[in-house]
Amino acid sequence: MTGLAEALGIEPDRVVAVIEALRARNETVATAESLTGGLVCAVLTGVPGASAVVRGGLVVYASQLKVALAGVNGRALYEHGAVHPLIAEELAAGARDRCQASWGIGLTGVAGPDPQDGVRPGTVHIGVAGPGPVIVDTLLTGGDRHAVRAAAVRRAVELLQAGIDRSPSGR
């Protein structure tokens, strides 16, 4: 197990449990990450055998790539800005659909130190798209860039686990 999960404050057993649950259900996961720059995918792939369930990850820091790679609606991006719950939802669905996975995780937010488009640092929106309705959560946290990004990754793993636990087995 990688030390990355621990460095981000995530119990390694939680990540292993998520990977094992996906494997047992014959399901897969993909990510579309903005502020976390691929950290969620890196944490998931830190588990031996993760290649059986992790399809891939899109790092879509630039707004144009959110549209081109993750399929985010350009009009929604223009109307709401890059840091919005709807964008997290679309990133999650885009990761799932574009990577042909059972589950998609999408993250967008402001790690700081400065606000972005009027949104304060520490604001994070996370979406998890699976077989049912998309789960979207907003996290308001403090601290430096590392603390914000670590909190976002922790919450993304928690939300994925919650989604898996609530959904019917198999897709």
Rank of each mutant, 00 (worst) to 15 (best):
residue 124 V to D: 02
residue 113 P to N: 14
residue 96 R to V: 01
residue 123 T to R: 03
residue 93 A to N: 10
residue 100 Q to F: 14
residue 121 P to G: 13
residue 88 A to C: 05
residue 104 G to H: 10
residue 97 D to F: 06
residue 87 I to S: 03
residue 107 L to C: 09
residue 85 P to A: 12
residue 115 P to D: 15
residue 115 P to L: 11
residue 109 G to H: 10
residue 84 H to Q: 08
residue 76 A to P: 02
residue 94 G to C: 07
residue 86 L to G: 06
residue 79 E to S: 03
residue 104 G to C: 09
residue 124 V to R: 07
residue 129 A to E: 06
residue 77 L to D: 06
residue 122 G to N: 14
residue 86 L to A: 13
residue 119 V to Q: 04
residue 130 G to W: 12
residue 129 A to N: 06
residue 103 W to Y: 13
residue 82 A to C: 11
residue 76 A to H: 11
residue 91 L to C: 07
residue 124 V to I: 11
residue 78 Y to C: 08
residue 114 D to R: 15
residue 116 Q to L: 14
residue 125 H to A: 01
residue 106 G to A: 11
residue 94 G to L: 00
residue 86 L to I: 11
residue 83 V to Q: 06
residue 95 A to H: 02
residue 118 G to I: 06
residue 91 L to G: 04
residue 98 R to S: 07
residue 96 R to I: 00
residue 110 V to H: 08
residue 105 I to R: 08
residue 99 C to T: 00
residue 77 L to F: 05
residue 107 L to G: 03
residue 120 R to N: 04
residue 98 R to E: 08
residue 102 S to F: 04
residue 79 E to P: 01
residue 103 W to D: 11
residue 110 V to W: 08
residue 121 P to H: 12
residue 99 C to A: 13
residue 120 R to D: 14
residue 123 T to Y: 01
residue 110 V to E: 12
residue 84 H to T: 11
residue 80 H to N: 15
residue 116 Q to W: 07
residue 79 E to W: 09
residue 109 G to F: 03
residue 108 T to D: 10
residue 101 A to E: 07
residue 107 L to A: 09
residue 77 L to Q: 05
residue 114 D to S: 14
residue 98 R to C: 02
residue 112 G to P: 09
residue 103 W to I: 05
residue 98 R to H: 05
residue 122 G to F: 15
residue 78 Y to W: 15
